[in-house]
Design a protein around this nucleic acid. Structure first.
Lengths: 157, 157, 157, 157
DNA sequence: TTTT
DNA sequence: TTTT
């Protein structure tokens, strides 16, 4: 029986373009690195800028949407669950990492670049060399998953 | 300028009694280990109980309140900020840990006694040395507490 | 396309037993009156207890669960959407009311009883007939429940 | 003693420019009308766009910041408390309204236009007849409150 | 690594 | 009344 609430609510900006992989079953797994910056007081009481970098993971349909619409610099609202994971590195040492498994996502800031097709009237954002990596065409979400295994080194990224 | 939202909202139960320390300046720093259990689907689609153990830290007055009122097994609402920290262990290896720095706390479950056990009334404010004293053993919460959370060398502060 | 976030997060106590109706299609619609009390400063800066009574509505399966497990005095976590509705009363006057349409619910307080009490194992959940039995008077929550919430002509559905 | 959680988390767009008044004591009270749009299923299961208009009130310093930076069309994150209020109209009839009393606000959408009065370099958004109502010049937040009473007809707006 |  |  469900017991407890574990919810993260984030608004921040992507530090990089999303990374997407597909499971053998064809499910998208998209990961982003999300910065949330706030002002905190340090031990001396001085205000100080503080940035936390969240690893956010989107599964399935949400992963496809994130892959299609989010880009480096995008501002986004994310809601999800905090997960503390552990894995054994190649050096045999146990490593810990924390991720936010998203269950809700909302792009912020107007149409916010990213996006698919042309014709937009408000490109504003940097739009860096998106052409660099030919992304699968993001038609709706019917895009056939590339035959791409979900290997161990996918996570953690 | 503040930029972004970084908020955790948790409802869960303490795996152990709180641990409180005081800075030289006399500020309380209380840490708890908080379990949130939910039902998730595993990779095969089967529902599966999933427990996350959060390290939650309370500073100052909130730390004193947490120390006074929370006990192993207590159910509590916590709101705070997710912080990803890194430190270098005695073995010279960088270690990562994540904590929730609480800014709001609310005891749940009636008057709240934490654990079931002992007949003691609510003890007065935490004394500094109180950590030495063995606290009543808190039945009611059968889930095994995470191994040796919050020992001194675990979390540097 | 979804645009915006509209989320209420509540922890409070029921002022009355839930009221459940069923649509012709057999879908449960359960309504509760939920009190959240906090300390606020009034205009003069004096701290003052402040109770808000939320009308919370649960649809479908969640409505059935709420009907089964919640009772007057129960403490509950609710997450939902804020809805501002309007209807025309029998007097021809437009009336406004606000409700929280829940999409997540979590019973709080361990056994549901307030109080710490006995070392017993966790008894099973409240049965339906339990309402007959005089429940503990919800101490701690002295504020009177709102008058006759959720009568038929109150809320049109 | 505080008891309960009453939290609204909103991301939406302003339907109009903010309205600001000052109490006799000089405290700013800024109100906005905030739209949150989402997709919901109606009773027939058809997806349907749904917009809720929230009345959000900012007090004090937050009210000054909101007045300075927010404008019609601005996208904003707001966190606050849900308040159900009642007043007696001039017709002697009791009226109810609900507002969100904000305790946190975050502008979204990049530089977000808005900004101060004339001559700005960043006007992008429609900026409809903002000239209609001469706004106090929003210098930082030191702007001296106009000798403007906070009269009864200010609220509800 | 983002953003302001 | 906003936005997409």
């Amino acid at each position: 029986m469900a017991r407890g609430i574990n919810k993260a609510i984030l608004v921040g900006n992507l530090g990089n373009d999303p990374e997407t992989k597909y499971t053998q079953g064809g499910m998208a797994i998209t990961k982003i690195s999300l910065a949330t910056t706030s002002v905190r007081k340090d031990r001396d009481g001085n205000p100080q800028e503080n940035t936390q970098w969240h690893r956010v993971t989107f599964f399935g349909k949400l992963g496809e949407i994130a892959a299609e619409y989010l880009r480096k610099g995008s501002q986004v609202y994310v809601e999800g669950e905090i997960r503390y994971d552990k894995y054994t590195g190649q050096d045999g040492v146990e490593k810990y990492f924390t991720e936010i498994v998203a269950n809700e996502m909302q792009m912020l800031g107007g149409r916010g670049e990213g996006g698919g097709g042309g014709g937009g009237d408000r490109p504003s954002r940097p739009q860096r060399q998106e052409s660099a990596a030919p992304r699968r065409q993001p038609s709706s979400q019917s895009s056939p998953p590339p035959a791409d295994d979900f290997s161990d080194d996918d996570i953690p990224f």
